[in-house]
Design a protein around this nucleic acid. Structure first.
Length: 193
DNA sequence: GACCAGATTGTCT
DNA sequence: GACAATCTGGTCA
């Protein structure tokens, strides 16, 4: 690692602020097979009890337990019978909000990502929430991990994200009116324009 | 490029 | 039993 790991207090703020400021930060996973890292280029905010698209809006269940827990932990959920998605939990214990990481730009361990994903094009490795989980080796075992220490953490390598834009969230059927997805304009790894 | 259906299973009603 | 914070590969243009 050659950056500063983001502390818990980074995540103890309004989720929209955290989602925006995660852009340009670096997600690192030190797995047994090797280390992979990527620059976060796209996120979405899930706003808890008042957001019908948020898993936690229906209350505390075994699945959403981590989101109700303290900030700075990993919420990894399984969906569509085959995909994992990775979120960073925000807000204090009891407030169940999170920032979904939707896309990364590969930084370290691209070779290992290719091996895990079996895709030749670099832009196919991490340009989507389920894709990046495969490329980074993130699965159910990562659910609940503390993001301020290895093996899974997010650090600041002082990368300037560039121009940021806000757009409606993707892949949900309710609450689509909010501009709660943000990404780095023009970045080729963003999942969708 | 746009649009569409199929895959496949955990989670909640 | 219905549905899901998705991806892929097909068709048509």
């Amino acid at each position: 690692m050659n950056g500063k790991i983001l502390p818990h207090k980074f995540y103890l703020r309004p989720t929209l602020d955290v989602a925006r400021e995660l852009l340009g930060k670096v997600l690192v996973h030190e797995a047994a097979e090797g280390e992979t890292a990527g620059i976060i280029v796209e996120t979405e905010a899930y706003m808890g009890a008042d957001d019908p698209a948020c898993h936690s809006a229906r209350g505390l269940t075994p699945r959403t337990e981590v989101m109700f827990g303290p900030a700075g932990h990993a919420y990894v959920y399984f969906t569509y019978g085959m995909h994992y998605c990775f979120n960073a939990v925000t807000q204090p214990r009891g407030v169940a909000e999170a920032a979904l990481i939707r896309a990364l730009e590969p930084l370290d361990g691209a070779e290992l990502m290719h091996k895990r994903r079996d895709r030749s094009r670099l832009t196919d490795l991490t340009s989507g929430p389920a894709k990046l989980c495969v490329a980074m080796g993130i699965d159910k075992a990562c659910n609940g991990l503390d993001l301020t220490r290895p093996p899974l953490y997010i650090e600041d390598r002082e990368i300037e994200p560039g121009e940021i834009v806000w757009r409606p969230r993707i892949g949900i059927r309710v609450a689509t009116e909010h501009l709660w997805r943000c990404y780095i304009k023009g970045n080729p790894f963003v999942s969708k324009k």
